[in-house]
């Protein structure tokens, strides 16, 4: 798909992506000549179709993580599903001129996986976990905490559920 600024007869360039918001992504293109912006808005089904292609809107600046599609998309995965040992340095972050569409969706969905609130200290401890297993650990902690009736995850809750999660994080 390409976008053309009719007035300038100039190909538009991707400048930003936002979302997802209830499955909808906003992909903004700008005309390099006149600066006019337009936004492409996707519905949830279209968002998922792009995700299914396993490509990134805005381009990919790092090599793909092995089995990224399966890891990011398959529900009900084994807790000990394999992780590659020498993967590239994590998924690219959203924002900036090169916005990884797929990565963005995943990250945004990760953040709203549950209604759990994380304290700053707990978030910081989570940050110490290697990116490749962070999502899995976050999910596991939230699941354990929810089962115990917690709505806020702090360092004490993390310590409490650590035993069940095993050696995934040491903090």
């Amino acid at each position: 798909m390409k976008f053309l600024c009719i007035e300038c007869d100039e190909a538009m360039k991707l400048t930003e992506t936002r979302g997802p918001d209830e499955g909808s992504m906003t992909v903004i293109f700008g005309c390099p000549s006149c600066g006019r912006d337009i936004a492409m808005l996707t519905n949830a089904m279209e968002t998922q179709m792009v995700r299914a292609l396993d490509v990134k809107i805005g381009g990919s600046s790092v090599p793909a993580e092995p089995m990224a599609m399966v890891k990011n998309t398959l529900r009900d995965q084994r807790d000990n599903a394999p992780m590659a040992q020498a993967m590239p340095a994590g998924k690219p972050k959203s924002g900036g001129s090169k916005c990884p569409f797929t990565g963005m969706i995943t990250e945004a969905e990760e953040a709203k996986q549950s209604g759990m609130q994380w304290t700053e200290e707990a978030e910081q401890r989570l940050e110490n976990i290697p990116p490749m297993v962070r999502m899995m650990v976050r999910k596991s902690i939230e699941q354990q905490a929810e089962e115990k009736g917690y709505t806020v995850i702090d360092a004490a809750v993390m310590d409490e559920v650590k035993g069940k999660i095993g050696m995934m994080y040491g903090g």
Partner: peptide, 29 residues
């Protein structure tokens, strides 16, 4: 990859509505 031997394969998505439009693409990927 599945957590239980008897689990069906379900793909995470913003919505499962109209999943027939993209399920084949996910399976191919």
């Amino acid at each position: 990859w599945l957590d239980e031997a008897g689990s069906p394969v379900v793909w995470d998505a913003p919505t499962q509505k109209d999943a027939f439009t993209w399920r084949g693409m996910v399976e191919a990927a």
